[in-house]
Design a protein around this nucleic acid. Structure first.
Length: 171
DNA sequence: AGCAAGATCGGT
DNA sequence: CCGATCTTGCTG
């Protein structure tokens, strides 16, 4: 199957996040390759989006989001769960897609634990990595949108933006 | 230097 | 509904 190049990620996160639904997340551990359909994503869009970590500006933690799209942004939440994100857009425009679900593993904290994703993936380049990348899916899919989960603190209008994308069926 | 809160999850 | 568990950004 075809690995998605950085061109796929250097677009607006509101285009990339829904386009990732139905794509294949590939994880390679010691020459063993595992593939999963991506079922749920969320978009975090720039410095103005108060739910996006980049709204805090360029800090050691958010630095990777300011890079050219196509690299991995991971961070620890609640002291125990790693969140897996893919950076999007051009350099200097901080956006990222949170991977909230893959087939058989719903929940952003559960899937990273299952896949063995941790701090060592911070900044990993999806176009050349030999342990994580994305491949084109085969089928067309349908999805729905809802507000993002767990970001009520961001307030209006951010908490109600329909920037969560969930796979509903495969055509 | 200290502190409150967090893009979660599983058990009551 | 509540606790686990620790990094982070903000305050002082």
């Amino acid at each position: 199957m075809l690995r998605l190049s950085s061109d796929f990620f250097t677009r607006d996160v509101l285009d990339v996040a829904p386009d990732l639904i139905g794509k294949i997340l590939v994880r390679k551990v010691k020459s063993e390759i595992q593939k999963f359909i991506i079922t749920e994503t969320e978009a975090y869009r720039g410095r103005e989006d108060l739910a996006c970590h980049a709204s805090k500006g360029l800090t050691p933690r958010t630095e990777v989001m300011f890079r050219e799209g196509g690299v991995v942004y991971v961070y620890l939440i609640y002291g125990m769960y790693w969140m897996l994100n893919f950076v999007t857009e051009k350099e200097g425009n901080p956006q990222a897609v949170l991977i909230r679900g893959i087939e058989n593993y719903n929940g952003p904290g559960k899937l990273t634990k299952f896949l063995g994703i941790d701090k060592s993936f911070y900044g990993e380049d999806l176009s050349i990595s030999d342990r994580i990348w994305i491949e084109e899916g085969t089928s067309k899919i349908n999805y729905k949108t809802t507000p993002r989960i767990g970001i009520d603190y961001a307030g209006e209008p951010w908490k109600n933006k329909p920037w969560r994308y969930v796979l509903t069926s495969i055509k």
